[in-house]
Design a binder for these strands. Structure first.
Lengths: 342, 342
DNA sequence: TATTGCTACTAAATCGATTTAGCTAAAGTA
DNA sequence: TACTTTAGCTAAATCGATTTAGTAGCAATA
């Protein structure tokens, strides 16, 4: 049982496929197709269970109604939730989403972009890894519809939608300061990523504004590998000596290291918030049920995802016209729980 | 700057595009293309940065090198991790994955299958929601390559790859019994899903084998909506009365309800495992850092994802031949932590 | 010399849509 | 009557690949 094509309908009725195409695309009036034939075509289409072949449409029109999504890792709940929003909004507009996890690896993302290009996706939503500036610049130069999410490159003029990481970290750090913490540490990922950098900068600025000297020993920069041992070492260095703890609070720049970190802290037999106060970026599920529910910087994932899709779709629709570049910075939502004491 | 096509290369060299196609598809020898021309074609292809248009290939060959993935919710870390494995294995074979979240809603999954069909995906990996039997049967009848994951329908003959949920729940319940728990509860989702049903069956069988009468008040079946209030009510009913607790242990059938449940338990001021012991399906991140790290039934996600992809790709490659139906049941991995005491 | 066989290629059909240009018959107008 | 207009439809090109069925030219064979 092969699929029904336009031609099948045309033959079935003894009319041209042009006519059938016109009718099924709602252009009957425009092309003065008689009501009678119009009705017949629609009936037969239904009867033969006709559904247009998107691949053929794609070849002819150059639009596949598919967008490519490149994120670090779909298994990471932060990106999972974001991906979900993107998928949902895309579906609302009849678009499909191809998911690619780059593992923060620029070679991978480059290859993924190349593959997606071969698949003729109409546009891209990208959370660009470090050292992928050239890839992004190339997309921009070729006038390919895309939008960056989560991070951006300040030196590249393009659409992006991020959160005010500096502000969020600044406020989070101030929250800790206000509760009397003096030796606040920051555990973060490779700081060459703009969003991570901004978080650490916000943290430092809050300390400066409180006239606290910045101690680089309190800033731990971990590799992307997310190796438990790296986190454990950092935690041990910061709070390992019970009688002489370097830090009395920790700001985690991502929930993935935060979750690992809290596990390490608990392994050391330390209590949150008594021994160490904690604030983390991203509102992970784990944070609501851990020993001391964690105060977090939550991102407006729904809005990020939805807006990202809208920006790309808009770019796709108006690819010829030069649209105004959209640089969107959203505010985060600070959720206070018990991990900082009170 | 338009993309380079086969024709562009052909014109550039004054040869036919047939020849170019042969060369670039490695069929030069087969069709006796001279070494000299062969080299030239390759050079020009490189020079013009040629990449085949997959859409055109797809139209001609009927293969899009894309598979459709339908799961309940990509934002759920269980499916996120599974999706990641699937994406990875698919990419290894040059395939793209379109992600669709069905929200356990059969109308949605039906629509998603329809859309994916229009997009001419080569095959499907599906975690089928309740009441989607007809959709699956239709796929099977039409000889469309697909494999079910996470759940299956016993009455439908088709490929699937699941875990031994009965055995896992049986062992988990036995673990609780062995530690002296008598009144073990089970909180699960709508039991019409085969995997959920098997979990509850395994739980009941373990009780029976221990000569413990099954108390249906200890089995709480929640709707899919995952409303916090439903979980809270169940928890309250089970362990709400401090002096007269119905249950002394809870087996959670999914990590999503488990995480919510633990939060409720902690809100009630109860201690795990002293007041209630806990075992949960699925190894959520949260479980390693919560007050009392949770003993879990972990699923072999890597194997499930990888095998699923291999089965579909195999079906795709041999679509004409009638392959043996693969019904795969994997064993789970029981990870003992602190939530059951000792 | 005619036939066959081989090498090295090409023309054209095809997949399933969209879209431009154009055609025929009837009606309206001068 | 002759010309224009309009309604209602169709042929054919096109997108970019793959693939079948050839063909031209030359050497080898009978």
């Amino acid at each position: 049982m092969k699929k029904t094509s336009l031609n099948d309908i045309a033959k079935h009725l003894g009319v041209s496929k042009t006519l059938v195409s016109f009718v099924l695309n709602g252009k009957a009036k425009e092309y003065r197709i008689s009501e009678e034939i119009c009705k017949k075509v629609q009936d037969v289409a239904q009867e033969l269970n006709y559904h247009p072949n998107r691949i053929a449409q794609g070849l002819r029109t150059g639009k596949t109604k598919t967008i490519g999504l490149i994120i670090a890792d779909i298994a990471n709940p932060f990106f999972g939730k974001l991906g979900r929003e993107i998928e949902q909004e895309a579906a609302r507009h009849g678009y499909h989403v191809i998911f690619c996890s780059s593992d923060e690896n620029p070679e991978k993302s480059e290859q993924q972009i190349a593959m997606l290009q071969q698949s003729q996706v109409d546009g891209y939503i990208i959370s660009p890894p470090m050292n992928s500036e050239d890839q992004i610049r190339t997309l921009a130069k070729r006038n390919i519809p895309f939008v960056l999410i989560d991070r951006y490159f300040p030196e590249i003029e393009c659409n992006y939608i991020v959160v005010d990481n500096f502000d969020a970290a600044y406020k989070a750090t101030n929250h800790l300061l206000a509760l009397g913490r003096k030796r606040i540490a920051n555990i973060t990922l490779n700081v060459d990523l703009q969003n991570m950098k901004a978080r650490t900068e916000g943290y430092k600025q809050a300390l400066r504004d409180a006239s606290i000297e910045i101690d680089e020993n309190l800033v731990k920069i971990l590799p992307f590998s997310h190796d438990n041992k790296d986190v454990a070492r950092s935690i041990k260095e910061l709070v390992g000596k019970k009688d002489n703890m370097l830090a009395d609070a920790i700001l985690f720049s991502t929930s993935k290291i935060g979750v690992m970190g809290i596990e390490c802290i608990s392994d050391l037999g330390l209590k949150v918030p008594d021994d160490v106060a904690i604030v983390s970026f991203d509102n992970a599920d784990a944070y609501t049920i851990c020993v001391s529910p964690v105060t977090v910087v939550a991102q407006p994932l729904k809005e990020i995802g939805k807006t990202a899709v809208q920006i790309v779709l808009n770019e796709i629709k108006n690819q010829k016209t030069l649209l105004k570049i959209q640089k969107i910075t959203l505010k985060t939502n600070f959720i206070i729980r018990k991990s900082c004491g009170s």
